[in-house]
């Protein structure tokens, strides 16, 4: 059991008695300053990635592969900056699972890609058909796998097989662009969620705030326990570096940093203040995470450096505890407890 350096809970918790107007204002802030810009960035990045794949496949080249990699990293950055949100249109049609598939269990991503590669190219490039394939083969992790494992194996072997990999890349890029555009549109388009929240009744508003706050608190568990804890292992010699999210593309630490930055931004916007202990705790955690090497798991089995990961987890743990105490009263909500604290 990792020793926890829980900050003393010397909090003057500010509780409010929120009216429907207050909740509407909070949601408008969260949507306008956090959710919509980040889905816009995701839609832009996935749209660009789709174009890059289309032009690469029209004329494959070594330089073009660099463009594919760059486009992938932009999409992955955009996704890591909004993935903590599960409320809203992202929850429809298994979209969240289609954009990300981590933790990967039973080698699901590779199996999904191999399964689709058995199709003919026309089938792969039929969006409706591809959307019905395993969700594990459609997301950021799948694209990473295609650009690393498969690509390395077939490096620029421009020929019959490569054109099939190209079709798969275009299909994944197309699916990500379609999903991202649909999510954005269902937030900001006519009759979109943002518009309906503007006129929603009090219960709908309360539920929306509650769901977003639950997403925020669930993100702590996901980042702390799974993305960091399960990878570094319970003790020296028990790390699982190969399982780290983004390991193949050198992104494990970057993902943690982007997730934490997203949590900080959502916290700040929700509380409408920079002056809060949760923000301070998250700032400490972000600083500490930024100082880690790109593959943070290299520290996990090093007796002289493992403490840096332990300390990072302690910082996140502190922010998590403070959030649980601060956020529900500040937003005048009662948080759900089944997923966070079941039995």
């Amino acid at each position: 059991m990792i020793a926890r350096l829980v900050l003393p809970l010397l909090l003057a918790v500010v509780a409010i008695d929120a009216s429907a107007a207050d909740r509407r204002e909070i949601l408008d802030r969260i949507a306008g300053d956090f959710i919509v810009p980040r889905y816009q960035a995701l839609a832009d990045a996935t749209g660009e990635q789709k174009k890059v794949w289309d032009s690469f496949c029209a004329k494959p080249s070594a330089a073009g592969v660099d463009d594919l990699q760059a486009a992938f990293h932009k999409v992955a950055d955009a996704w890591s900056s909004i993935e903590i949100v599960r409320y809203g249109p992202i929850s429809k049609d298994f979209r969240h699972e289609r954009l990300a598939h981590w933790p990967e269990r039973r080698n699901a991503v590779s199996r999904a890609l191999e399964s689709v590669l058995r199709w003919n190219e026309e089938a792969i490039l039929t969006p409706k058909r591809f959307a019905g394939s395993s969700v594990a083969g459609q997301g950021v992790t799948a694209m990473e796998r295609l650009l690393t494992d498969v690509y390395k194996r077939e490096a620029l072997a421009v020929g019959g097989e490569w054109s099939k990999y190209c079709a798969l890349g275009r299909a994944i890029a197309g699916s990500q662009a379609d999903v991202s555009a649909a999510v954005l549109n269902e937030w900001i388009g006519k009759n979109g969620l943002r518009e309906s929240l503007a006129t929603a009744d009090e219960n709908t508003l309360r539920e929306a705030v509650t769901r977003i706050a639950t997403d925020l608190l669930a993100a702590y568990e996901f980042v702390d326990d799974l993305k960091l804890g399960a990878i570094m292992g319970p003790e020296l010699g028990k790390s699982r570096a190969a399982m780290a999210e983004g390991r193949r593309s050198g992104r494990p630490t970057r993902i943690i940093v982007l997730n934490l930055e997203a949590m900080r931004a959502l916290t700040r916007i929700s509380l409408d203040t920079e002056d809060d202990q949760v923000i301070d705790a998250l700032d400490n955690a972000i600083r500490m995470a930024r100082d880690l090497p790109p593959q943070f798991a290299t520290l996990a089995d090093d007796p002289k450096r493992r403490w840096r990961l332990v300390l990072l987890r302690d910082m996140i743990w502190s922010a998590r505890n403070l959030s649980q105490t601060t956020i529900p009263p500040a937003l005048d909500i009662t948080l759900g407890f089944n997923s966070l604290d079941g039995d």
């Binding site: 929850s91 539920e207 639950t214 759900g336 997923s339």
Partner: peptide, 26 residues
């Protein structure tokens, strides 16, 4: 079926139907 924070579960009145309860989605 997706439902956030769903846990409570019981038979509904009709056959092949269920009542689901959630911590944050009613």
């Amino acid at each position: 079926r997706p439902m956030p924070d769903v846990c409570g579960l019981a038979a509904a009145a009709a056959p092949e139907a269920f009542v689901l309860t959630s911590g944050n989605a009613g």
